[in-house]
């Protein structure tokens, strides 16, 4: 058991180093940004807001009609900087799907006003902590993992049957 603190200290150093490294490197979830530049709407796609999602597939759906249908209005691909521009024909909620065809997909609703103030309903699909920075989310995840392991360890140690029982 005397080796345990030494082992934990070594592992903690390695994880701290990896944490620093990770804070410098981007992760890879697909993120989107919407801007209305009348008469156009500009969609910007990136991985974690840092690496442009170039040449990924885009499908634009017009606002639903009276019968609730929202057919595809336009399809295409982002440019090398991860941008895609389309020309909406009416105000309303324009749904834009982005897909890199490698398992990463995002959907954003561009609320077109026609006055250059498109708001984006770009809430992350899983909700939660996406508004926080990478480092903060990483720290939160590590805290949860270590906390859960610690609680489980404590609970199991407390309920462990004595040797020979």
């Amino acid at each position: 058991m005397t080796a345990l603190p030494h082992r934990i200290a070594g592992a903690a150093r390695a994880i701290l180093a990896a944490f620093v490294l990770t804070a410098l490197l981007p992760a890879h979830d697909l993120q989107t940004r919407v801007e209305e530049k009348p008469p156009f709407v500009v969609i910007s796609a990136s991985y974690e807001g840092t690496e442009a999602a170039s040449f990924i597939a885009v499908t634009v759906h017009a606002p639903p009609s009276a019968d609730g249908k929202a057919d595809a209005f336009q399809t295409g691909r982002t440019d090398v900087e991860g941008k895609f521009v389309f020309l909406p024909t009416a105000p309303g909620d324009w749904r834009v799907q982005l897909d890199d065809e490698m398992g990463h997909r995002a959907e954003v609703v561009a609320k077109v006003t026609g006055q250059g103030a498109a708001a984006a309903d770009a809430a992350p699909p899983n909700g939660g902590a996406a508004g926080r920075g990478t480092g903060e989310r990483l720290l939160l995840g590590l805290s949860i993992l270590f906390g859960a392991a610690g609680l489980l360890y404590g609970w199991m140690a407390r309920h462990r049957k004595p040797a020979g029982a």
């Binding site: 994880i15 990896a18 490197l25 992760a27 990483l138 993992l145 859960a148 610690g150 360890y153």
Partner: peptide
């Protein structure tokens, strides 16, 4: 298990 979970969690964020 906790340590390796943390290591995997961190490693998979390195793009």
């Amino acid at each position: 298990m906790g340590l390796l979970a943390a290591a995997t969690f961190v490693a998979s964020l390195v793009n």
